[in-house]
Every structure is written in structure tokens, then in C-alpha cells.
Amino acid sequence: MRTFVITGGTQGIGKALALHYLGRGDRVLAIGTSQVRGETLLAEADRLSAGDRCSFLPADLSSLTMTARLADRLRTQYPSIDALVLGAFRFQTKRQETAEGIERTFALYVLSRYLLAEELRTALERAPHPVIVNLCGTGSKAGRLYWNDLQLRRRYRPLMATMQGARANDLLGVAFAAEHPDSPIRYVLHNPLFVDTGLAEPFSQPTRTALNIITRLFAAPVDKAIEPIVDLMDTPPESALSAFQVRRTIDVTGPAFDLTAAHRLTRTLRNLIIKSVEPKAKD
């Protein structure tokens, strides 16, 4: 029986992956913020006779402190983890800061993914074929990193924040593979493209209705969207780092995967984590 940790595991692609692996006899640790969605997942697991193999772990991953505590709990209770799926994301229509003073999209989409991969690395390395799957906009040419204003204090646009996060996640994969060259973990960047995962939810009317119509017409259903992800999780690529848009392989040597920028990003993230978490730990 394998053990899967899935962030964003109570809805969309994360939930579909959770139910798939529960149906195959594996253990799933689903992380989410909604108690209602968590209880719904547990009820569906019971219907699959998998209630004893499904856990819902409520956590706001935009909080560095909560993310670090969650990672410590997971390491303690599950010393061997087969796969980590990084799927938690929420489109922020307005700029918000967390209690730790970090822009919320950056905290959830970038910092939490970096922190979980690093903190769970030793547990993953104990598994026979460990894999990290980072669900992001891999290989996108539209976004950029605003190095002098990563938290977009001077100018915030929702899509700008999202696309910056997508570019940052590509670099997280590059940095992980480079900084842990002897690790057996395979780091997979995966862009599922347009999937019916509740994109319209954060928006007000009439935008919500318009997005719902577009989704029904053009978005891939979740059960189809997870198929290439399942294949990658069941048979991880040989390369330490790989990237895909659905099933199309993305070249990880291009400008979006610059090693110097990747090291710069992880240095920045480590410093930000130290400044944000350590003062509160001393209080």
C-alpha cells in the first residue's frame, strides 16, 4: 500500500486523484481548507470501503507556520511517503496578505510548495519510487518574476500574480533537482491546461456565469485530466526533473528553467521564511 499526500485534495484534480488511489487500495492524506469538502471526501471514501485509508487534514497552506506544522506531523506519522501532489491554489481577485504579512497567492502557490517539498524530502526518499507532482503552468512564456517586488505591493493584478507563481514553480523544480542531485525523488511539473475545477468560484456576477459557460464548453472533465498525471505517478520519469503540458513533454533546459534564477528564488524564499516564521516562533 502506497501513501499519497495531496494538497488541494478535497476538490478538482486533487480530489479525483485521491478517489482514484483510494479505489486502488492506497492510503491518501488529503489536505484542504474546507471542512465540508473534507467530510464529503471522507464519505465518498467510505462508499469505496476505503474510509480507513483516507485522512482529511485541514490546513491553510498560505500560512507558513501551519504548513511547517503540517509537514512535521506528516513526517512523524508517516515516515515513508510515496508521492506528494502539490495542487492547492486559489485565484485571488484582490490582493490580500496573510497574518505573516505575505501576499496570499505567493504564499500559497509558491512558498507552501517549496516548503512542503523540502520538509517532506526525507520521508519521500524512503519510498521505493518517490515522486513530487507540481500542478502548475509549466513552460509558460506569459509570466515573469518581479524580483524587486515579488509580493506585488506596488502593482497587483490577479493574473499577474498567478502567472508569476507559474514561472516560480518551474524554477522550484529546477532548484530541487539541482540542490538534491543524489535524491531518488523524481520532480514532475505538470500543466493539465483547462480543466473543469471550479475556476469561476472566486468571481462575482456576471463574470462567474460567463466563466461557467466557457468551462462547460471547453474545459476537460476532471476524470480525463487526471489520466496523464496517474501515469506519471505510477511510472515516474527517469529524469530528476521533467515537465509536461497534459502529455506533451516540455524542454526543461529553456529560459523558463534557468538554473541561476532557480537558485536565486530558493535563496529568496529561505530568507522570507526565516523572517516570517522565526520571529513568531520566539514570541
Rank of each mutant, 00 (worst) to 15 (best):
P128A: 15
H129G: 11
H129D: 09
P130M: 13
V131A: 15
V131D: 05
I132C: 10
I132Q: 04
V133T: 13
V133S: 08
V133H: 01
L135W: 01
L135D: 06
C136T: 11
C136G: 11
G137T: 09
G137E: 07
G137S: 07
G137M: 09
T138K: 03
T138M: 02
G139W: 00
G139C: 04
G139S: 02
K141Y: 03
K141L: 08
A142Q: 05
G143I: 00
R144Q: 14
R144Y: 00
R144L: 11
L145F: 02
L145E: 03
L145N: 05
W147V: 12
W147Q: 14
W147F: 10
W147A: 14
N148S: 15
N148H: 15
D149F: 00
L150R: 07
L150I: 13
Q151A: 13
Q151L: 06
Q151F: 00
L152K: 10
L152R: 12
L152P: 12
L152C: 13
L152N: 12
R153E: 12
R155V: 08
R155E: 14
Y156H: 02
R157S: 13
P158K: 01
P158E: 01
P158H: 01
L159E: 15
L159D: 12
L159S: 12
M160K: 09
M160T: 05
T162A: 15
T162P: 06
M163Y: 12
M163A: 14
M163N: 09
Q164G: 10
Q164N: 06
Q164W: 00
A166N: 05
R167W: 00
R167P: 01
A168G: 03
N169Y: 00
N169G: 07
N169L: 01
D170N: 10
D170K: 06
D170Q: 08
D170E: 05
L171H: 08
L172W: 01
G173M: 04
G173I: 00
V174F: 00
V174T: 10
V174P: 07
V174N: 09
A175C: 09
A175H: 07
A177M: 13
A177N: 11
A178R: 06
P181I: 01
D182G: 15
D182I: 11
D182S: 13
S183L: 10
P184K: 06
I185V: 15
R186S: 08
R186Q: 14
R186E: 08
V188M: 11
L189P: 05
L189V: 04
H190K: 09
H190N: 05
H190I: 07
H190T: 02
N191F: 02
P192G: 05
P192H: 03
L193E: 03
L193D: 09
F194N: 08
V195D: 03
V195L: 09
D196P: 04
T197H: 03
G198A: 08
G198E: 12
L199A: 13
E201V: 14
E201S: 15
P202L: 04
P202R: 05
F203D: 08
F203E: 06
F203S: 06
S204R: 14
Q205I: 14
Q205C: 13
P206I: 04
T207L: 07
T207S: 07
T207F: 04
T207A: 09
T207V: 09
T207E: 10
R208S: 13
T209M: 05
T209V: 06
A210D: 03
L211N: 10
L211T: 03
N212W: 02
I213Q: 06
I213F: 10
